[in-house]
Design a protein around this nucleic acid. Structure first.
Lengths: 227, 227
DNA sequence: ATTACTAGTAGTCGAGTAT
DNA sequence: TATACTCGACTACTAGTAA
């Protein structure tokens, strides 16, 4: 459901912890207090806390004097996922989603993926163009990272992964995009366990650096036609 | 928990319906589809739908060809409550919450409440001032109503209700506020089953119309010192 | 194909209690 | 005080199936 990897009742427990101020920094509380907040018993609060810990959504140290809890980055991710989805669905967006980034030379992990036959055919069929070899790497400022997260709440064009010579190539998520207001291409998001939020890789049917006269440090605008 | 009057699992069912586009306008779907989205069986989706209907959170018409569902205003309220709370907790707010409104002469329902002894003592003790008789009524534009809803997600100063001569006086929620940047007072929110979102009532230790030279149609700014 | 009932079961909860 | 275990009670699920 909406990419949520957490049981519902546990999601609300996490939400309660956020309410207590456990977002990122540790907060001192107790299971009776948490139970009151959640409308459950002390026992349930205690158990849910330990479930959340096992799943890696909170870090905790308990003693007979109370508990210290902190929601982990993974936990915040779960809360953000729902938040951003609600934001898109309730507030909607006024105008298209626009993300700005700075061109840089990366190690081209995306470029390597791109070159695989198993992906190429799908790109052409699903995106409507055959990508020029290589990817354009963009670095996002922290303000832009927020928008990237919003982007990820929308349903992507999903390119299926495959196995080839024992190596595993995972799914790739694509979002069609208009680059600098003129070239149609796509942002590709490679599923990694812990990717770098501040990097975006762009593909297009043309060589973007040439076509748009870009060099390292150039700033460009990505315009996503969503919904 | 956070003013949520809905069981957790049902909240997520509502969230799923929003995802399907059932926010305010009816959408055609089916219980198998909803079940898939929610990660439950068709039977559970069907039952939850009917529970939500009984509780007044969705309107529905079912036939052997599928269901037509629409989330009611009450249902949207539940979703918004969580959304606004997440917004405040995750994004935080930059600067204080400021709400603008237009002065008008109301029927003074708040003024009537205010005059009750059972409230007066509590106002003085909890708010730190004894309110001048009467309330100042403000009409909010639709953009301001959004902020009013955000306000309501914060924990209020709760004034307890009471019974007097057989009549019941309910709880009153108060938020301290600075009016037009100079007078300290409080917004009072009276619990009604279906209040008018676009009206706000303000009390203060002084007569606001006199002190600030207000008349009907005057625009004033309310500044809430939150968190 | 649907919706949605019944029945059996799996899952969840809180009282009691140990530490 | 606190955390957190066991266990009986209850809730909510799904499979089967009727309409």
């Amino acid at each position: 459901m909406g990419g949520l990897s957490l049981k519902r009742r546990l999601w609300f427990a996490l939400y309660g912890l956020l309410e207590l101020g456990a977002g990122h920094r540790a907060v001192g509380t107790s299971t009776p207090e948490l139970g009151r907040l959640l409308g459950t018993s002390q026992q349930t609060a205690s158990r849910q806390l330990s479930e959340l810990e096992v799943l890696g959504f909170v870090a905790r140290s308990a003693s007979f004097r109370g508990v210290e809890v902190r929601i982990t980055e993974q936990g915040m991710e779960e809360l953000r996922a729902v938040y951003l989805r609600l934001k898109a669905l309730i507030d909607g967006r006024i105008g298209p989603l626009i993300v700005e980034g700075t061109v840089f030379s990366g190690f081209g992990e995306g470029a390597y993926y791109l070159s695989q036959r198993g992906y190429l055919d799908q790109f052409e069929r699903r995106l409507g163009f055959s990508p020029c070899p290589g990817t354009l790497n963009l670095r996002l400022s922290s303000g832009e990272v927020v928008k990237r997260r919003e982007l990820e709440t929308y349903p992507p064009i999903l390119i299926r992964g495959f196995r080839r010579r024992g190596r595993h190539f995972g799914d790739v998520r694509c979002y069609p995009v208009i680059i600098s207001g003129e070239v149609e291409g796509a942002v590709i998001l490679i599923n990694r366990t812990h990717y770098d939020d501040s990097v975006l890789e762009v593909i297009a049917p043309v060589h973007l650096r040439t076509k748009l006269g870009l060099r390292d440090g150039s700033r460009i605008k990505l315009q996503f036609p969503l919904m």
